[in-house]
């Protein structure tokens, strides 16, 4: 135990650097995937066949390709096309796009769960499509999508470790590097696991709080 504490003190500063990158990648891709996911979902329910078709094709394509392959594509293939990104940028964009497909399906389910009568009520007071979405549908859909959204946040936090495959020295990669140079596998990976857990728990609590706050009745 004493050894574990001593090693921990030694390893933690390096792991915390990785944790910082994990948070950056997670936060960045969360924002990007939420914005893109909402865009796909709105296109899908827009009633405009071409927009709905583009959205559907995109979402199904993205869902059908492993995240790790998407990351490789963005980090290793795009430079051939003259677009070079830093590893962190590539990770944020890759995870953001990959997750936007799941976000979009969640948002769409929430939007489609709202009673048709709500749209009609909005229409009869003269609201157009945008106003109906903003004032009537999305505020109600928000409550429905919240629990699965929380789930997605936690999955993203963990999947940010896939950024290690394109050289982002986030928490998991830092752990692996320390472990392979010190052979303190138990200590290092226990710490890494605990640090992920420490980040997940606040997210779980936050979602629980929001669900109570917005009263799922």
């Amino acid at each position: 135990m004493q050894g574990f504490l001593k090693d921990s003190i030694e390893f933690l500063p390096i792991l915390l650097q990785g944790l910082r990158l994990t948070l950056i990648v997670t936060a960045g891709s969360l924002v990007l995937s939420t914005a893109l996911g909402l865009l796909w979902a709105l296109m899908r329910v827009s009633g405009v066949p071409i927009l709905a078709g583009i959205s559907k094709t995109f979402v199904n394509t993205i869902r059908g390709i492993p995240i790790i392959v998407q990351l490789f594509y963005i980090y290793f293939v795009l430079p051939d096309l003259g677009i070079s990104l830093t590893a962190v940028q590539a990770a944020i964009i890759g995870l953001g796009i990959a997750y936007s497909a799941y976000q979009s399906e969640n948002f769409r389910a929430g939007i489609e769960a709202i009673d048709r009568g709500q749209v009609e009520a909005a229409q009869t007071i003269g609201m157009g499509w945008g106003l109906t979405m903003r004032r009537v549908i999305l505020p109600q859909a928000f409550k429905i999508v919240l629990p699965p959204y929380g789930n997605i946040m936690i999955m993203m936090l963990k999947d940010s470790s896939q950024a290690s495959t394109i050289t982002v020295a986030e928490l998991a990669l830092q752990g692996k590097l320390i472990a392979s140079s010190t052979f303190q596998n138990t200590t290092v990976f226990t710490l890494v696991a605990l640090l992920y857990l420490c980040m997940s728990i606040p997210l779980i609590l936050l979602v629980g709080h929001l669900e109570r706050r917005f009263g799922l009745r």
């Binding site: 009568g117 009520a121 003269g126 109600q140």
Partner: peptide
């Protein structure tokens, strides 16, 4: 229009339901 199933906006109060159209439309 007034509907059989009312179709009030559940996330808004009575007054907010009433003023939604005048304010935003």
């Amino acid at each position: 229009m007034v509907f059989q199933r009312f179709n009030l906006f559940p996330h808004r109060t009575a007054l907010e339901n009433v003023i939604e159209g005048p304010i935003f439309v």
